[in-house]
Design a protein around this nucleic acid. Structure first.
Lengths: 191, 191
DNA sequence: AATAATATTGAACAATGTTCAAATATATTC
DNA sequence: GAATATATTTGAACATTGTTCAATATTATT
């Protein structure tokens, strides 16, 4: 039953990641089961365990892709905008937009027990953090302060999105995530 | 096999909540299984489904208890401190302390798919939010602004704790949660 | 004492992650 | 080109979840 030439190991990884991502986008993180993904790939569950150590490994691969895609967006922002405050407002908006447009991919980012020993994962995280810190540098002063502010900014963005997702925001009325982020940034950026 | 007088319905609820809490504290949210809790109670899994609609209902009960306990702490702070900034620094510190001392209970708060139709849950959340908003009122101006700032503050505290938990904080070096919160508050409270 | 009401059990079901011997397809060797 | 070695895929199995529900055991009522 082996079909060794159907897909190389790399192709299998890519295929599994693509299928997994589609499943998550369509049905949410809970649809990311070994059997679901395998069926969509045209393989069986066992094959997945040839590629990933476990199902969290597949989730990590999807997350890395999400982060890389997001990092590219930030790069664009940094390329086309020179003013620090403008940059940070756009980056923040990009975060909200990502959660708005792909809520399930966003949820997967924080539903997955991260594999701290995965270098690829760490790199993807750092790529984003470094960009945000770079954007903050002119406002924060030292590099260390910029890194701290990046963590604060990221924490706040994430927390606000969480509140939204959990329906604790009374979004219907006035406190939209956008408004909260604006209020936060107005304070945070006046350095 | 029925032991109708062993425990009333209320006692059963309390017992299940207590056992569940102990399990979570000792072994983490993943130990909160129906069979685990039931065994600790001296019952079987089926009994739990007489009390709670599902296992998330039990998690919700534990979370409500966590929030109530936390709310009491905030009340103490508000009772003994009049100055707005001092209040907020202590409340923030209390949040960090809770996550430090009961990391698993804290994790359960955000690992549980919240039952939005649970009044008790909503109340517990609001009790905390209202207190924080009250503490912010003198600094934020309007009641609406205070509620927004409460959400921002809460989001940031939560996000920082998440970063810490996920090991993305390089805590070992310099960026402790305490330091990040201090930096955030120094900005946030200067109104 | 007989009957009704109720609480509890325990077995069952489906779905999950995960493992691994067996089966099968390709590569290599002679 | 046949035989052997290597690698890949399967599919069945296992343990563990949540969850349901008829059967059973206990208490309440008549």
């Amino acid at each position: 039953m082996a079909r060794r030439k159907d897909h190389t190991r790399e192709e299998l990884t890519a295929l599994a990641t693509k299928c997994g991502q589609q499943l998550v986008i369509a049905e949410g993180p809970s649809a990311l089961t070994a059997r679901n993904v395998a069926k969509m790939m045209g393989y069986t569950a066992g094959t997945l365990y040839n590629i990933f150590e476990n199902i969290d490994g597949l989730a990590a691969a999807i997350n890395i892709q999400s982060m890389d895609s997001f990092a590219k967006g930030i790069e664009e922002i940094l390329r086309h905008n020179a003013k620090p405050k403008k940059r940070l407002r756009l980056i923040s908006k990009a975060y909200l937009t990502f959660q708005e447009e792909e809520p399930y991919l966003w949820a997967l980012l924080f539903a997955t027990p991260i594999n701290s020993d995965s270098d690829a994962y760490r790199q993807a995280v750092h790529r984003i953090f470094d960009q945000v810190a770079e954007a903050l540098q002119p406002l924060s002063g030292s590099a260390k302060a910029a890194r701290q502010d990046a963590k604060i900014l990221w924490s706040t963005l994430h927390g606000i999105c969480l509140l939204k997702e959990h329906g604790k925001l009374d979004v219907s009325t006035t406190d939209t995530p956008e408004e909260l982020v604006k209020r936060f940034l107005d304070q945070f950026l006046q350095k």
